[in-house]
Simulated assay, not measured.
Amino acid sequence: MPSRIPPSTGVGFKHTHLDDILADTDPVGFLEVHAENYMGDGGFPHRALERVRQDYPVSLHGVCMSIGGPEPLSTDHLARFKALVERYEPGLISEHLAWSTHDDVFMNDLLPLPYTDETLAHVCEHVDRMQSFIGRQMLLENPSTYVVFDNSTMSETDFIREIARRTGCGLLLDVNNVFVSATNHGYSPLTYLMDFPLELVGEIHLAGHAVQEDDEGETLLIDSHDAPVADPVWDLFEIVVKQTGPIPTLVEWDSDLPDWPVLKSEATAAERILERVASTFMMGKRHAAAV
């Protein structure tokens, strides 16, 4: 049976932290792993994941399925992903609204796509294909973006909402991605969240970002996952969970890894917000974030 992910805070599982995780007497709520790191059959990565899976529920997060790409999904990649689902029985399964492949070329970046009827049709086809192949619902994550397409005919929130309506997928709301994209493109993150279908969110991601400048000297945020969660992202997170109630929340930190106490402190900060919200949240239909 799939593990149940509690409405609490988890962290991305890194082998560097294995001993600390096993020794922690106040464990986090769950661990999340990137599927592509475990697509070999054995070795230390699997031994480590098998060990923590004895004590923790696991969320499986894909980064290379290329849901937004123009070509059909790779049957080999789907088969490897399904094998992980069957082996570790994750409580949640997610992928990105992005593309990362073209013909036989695989790129390391999660690239944006235009929000058009044509793109919508093939994204829905890919989501349907993935869910049918693995026999589970997936959560689709909103992207962080650095460019927009002139030929887009709908907003990102409308595009995401329609994917969920057509396919029955759930949503993964990355709050840092919202803040990064809003800053880069000059719109309000709260306006975005007010139009986001929060009632479909099954998991939240939090992460740090890097602050740079573009060629015109304007601020450019990069979704780098190499720093603590920024204060504005914490504020947006609290606004969201006041509307949704506590739901599984992941702190991502994928490069320049800190020592375990630093990462754990980020998870603890998120957990305190969830606990504070839980004490006042009134059960009922989720609704859009209010300013």
Rank of each mutant, 00 (worst) to 15 (best):
V123E: 03
Y88G: 00
T219F: 10
A48K: 04
G208D: 03
R272K: 15
E36K: 11
A270W: 06
W253F: 02
P197K: 11
V233C: 07
S74A: 09
L73H: 11
V277C: 07
I134T: 06
V251H: 06
S8D: 13
P90S: 13
G168Q: 06
V291A: 15
E141F: 01
T191L: 15
L220C: 10
K82Q: 14
A289M: 07
L220N: 06
V178E: 00
H77C: 07
E71C: 08
A182P: 00
D158R: 09
S59T: 07
E162L: 12
G68N: 04
T9G: 06
E216K: 11
P114K: 07
M138Y: 04
Q131T: 06
I222R: 06
C64I: 12
L110G: 00
T145E: 14
L173F: 11
T9K: 01
D109Q: 07
V85D: 05
A164V: 04
D259K: 12
N176D: 09
V11G: 07
A290D: 12
P197G: 03
L198M: 02
L274E: 01
A269R: 12
S94H: 05
H15I: 14
H46K: 07
D256H: 11
A35I: 00
T280H: 07
Q54Y: 08
G62F: 10
D117G: 13
A269N: 11
E156K: 00
Q243D: 08
D174V: 05
D231A: 10
Q212T: 15
S132Y: 11
L97I: 06
V123T: 08
M154L: 08
T219G: 10
I160F: 00
H225M: 03
E71H: 11
V291R: 15
T75P: 09
L139F: 05
L18E: 15
V11N: 08
M194P: 03
E271S: 12
E218K: 12
I163V: 11
R47V: 00
D235G: 08
V123S: 03
F106A: 09
D195H: 15
P114I: 06
N37S: 13
G42K: 15
D226K: 05
Y187F: 07
H209K: 14
F159W: 10
H96Q: 08
D259M: 10
P112S: 11
A290H: 13
F237Y: 11
V33M: 03
A227Y: 01
K242T: 15
F133H: 10
E203Y: 07
V262F: 11
K82V: 09
S94R: 04
K82P: 08
H17G: 02
T101K: 12
G12P: 04
S224P: 06
V28P: 01
D109P: 00
D235E: 15
R47F: 09
G12L: 03
A48G: 02
G62Y: 08
A290F: 12
F13V: 05
S152E: 08
E89D: 14
M130K: 05
H225D: 01
E86S: 15
E50L: 13
T119S: 05
A269L: 12
V127I: 10
Y146T: 06
L221K: 03
L22G: 02
G217E: 08
S100N: 15
S3N: 14
S155E: 06
Y115C: 07
A289Y: 00
A79G: 11
R165K: 09
L250C: 09
R136M: 01
H61F: 04
S8T: 14
R87A: 15
L111N: 01
V178H: 00
